[in-house]
Design a protein around this nucleic acid. Structure first.
Lengths: 257, 257
DNA sequence: AAGTGGTCTAGACCACAGC
DNA sequence: CTGTGGTCTAGACCACTTG
């Protein structure tokens, strides 16, 4: 028993939203189906159109429905999750020659694409500087920004930060960084990835992120701040992953001491 | 350079929102400070109050500002994160006699509280049944629902599922489950926690979750579906954690094979 | 009492979908 | 052309907070 019988006392927009939500949960309105139009809802409940509109907004904020201009409001389809596991850092996967993203995409029968947006020398953000142990007040890092797509749909934004002193003049400054990607080059520089630290948070996207990831209202992002540690427990690479949360999950499997 | 000079062409509500966002990012409006009232904004921009209101809603959806009835709209304060690490499952922590949550709370100088809401025999949700390897069509599990607080502020909802056949008649059915909590009892039943699998996703809260966690609009939740595996790689416990994302982060530190 | 956000009304014009 | 959501106006009353 949640909430149902306080029909009075509630704002009209809430009551309309609750009725629609109940319809969806009972399966009367199935995924992909169209809701009554705003004008129809308003008439049906004896309210103004703005009130019906407010009800629909409440549902959209929860990610339950999606409005499409000129067409109508539809019950959102459950999305299959694109899953990123802790084994994405595993060396075993490295031997296939495919990056973890390409592997996962193949598994789901989708066509992966990675756009390299920029590779520039920069002043690092403070959280990155702290974790990579470099100065936050000089151009101490190389920033590689990539966008990942599956079947031309954007999935994640990845910003990778490397020490400028190490990357200068190497393939780490090139879009095509050679066999096994940047981790291959970093290994040649003497950094064997031994441990990783992933710090995970969730938040609503910035307008810029919503645009790049093509996010509908009511969809949050998952942010992973990843640090790679080498055989000497020295951090040698930090990446910020921004995933769209409606199509992405994370999987961590680990031993317990 | 993001977007600034397309002042025309943009809806008025967007322009007002962008102007306010810029003010906040430039630091003219600091965290905790009050925005101009909706009526003042409307007059200032020569728009109707509803239009100014829409602008504020855009900012609230991103979690940038918070409206307080009768008082005003305020720039949201950055929250300190309550951090849950992968070491929360570690045996080392078990020896302190404190659960990981109590430990973390102590570290931050907050007073922890755990409410046991219910302990009931139930039909498991399908995702839980699959992971615990029990039938999804009979009352095969015990469901323990707990709410966690720090300084009386809700932090997370935890639903733990155990096999009914193992829990029946034991302390696992009691609110106070004895030394080292339920993991202590499960160890006595022959389950040594050897590996864990955490599946992480983010989404907007249901109305029920928003109520329990006292969530402001524009704050998503982090959901962790946790499976404990014993020395035989058998799953013996599944929990669903629902964290408020504005005050919670997750930390995973793991070796790379 | 005055000011604030929360909700609502009854209109209006626009841009986009689909027939 | 018609129906849809997107945006906007100019009012109104309510509930809450503060002086």
């Amino acid at each position: 028993m949640t909430a149902s019988d306080r029909s009075s006392q509630q704002p009209a927009s809430r009551r309309i939203a609750d009725a629609l939500r109940a319809s969806i949960e009972r399966g009367e309105l199935e995924a992909g189906q169209k809701l009554p139009s705003e004008r129809a809802l308003a008439e049906q409940y004896g309210a103004a159109r703005n009130t019906a509109r407010e009800a629909i907004r409440l549902l959209a904020e929860q990610g339950l429905v999606t409005a499409k201009q000129g067409r109508g409001v539809f019950v959102r389809e459950p999305q299959r999750l694109f899953r990123f596991g802790s084994d994405r850092y595993s060396i075993a996967n490295r031997e296939t020659g495919l990056t973890p993203f390409r592997l996962e995409a193949k598994k789901q029968g989708k066509v992966p694409r990675i756009d390299v947006l920029s590779i520039t020398r920069e002043v690092p953000p403070s959280d990155v500087a702290e974790r990579l142990q470099v100065p936050a007040d000089s151009e101490s890092v190389v920033h590689r920004e990539n966008h990942y797509f599956a079947d031309d749909e954007p999935v994640q934004i990845v910003s990778t930060y490397l020490r400028w002193e190490e990357a200068e003049g190497t393939l780490l400054m090139q879009a095509k960084s050679g066999p096994n990607g940047i981790y291959g080059r970093l290994e040649e520089l003497g950094h064997v990835m031994t441990r990783v630290r992933d710090e995970i948070s969730a938040r609503m996207p910035s307008p810029e992120e919503a645009r790049v990831l093509d996010l509908l209202p009511g969809v949050p992002v998952l942010e992973v701040l990843h640090t790679s540690l080498d055989q000497n427990s020295e951090p040698f690479e930090v990446s910020r992953y921004v995933h769209r949360a409606d199509q992405t999950g994370l999987l961590y499997e680990l031993p317990v001491s």
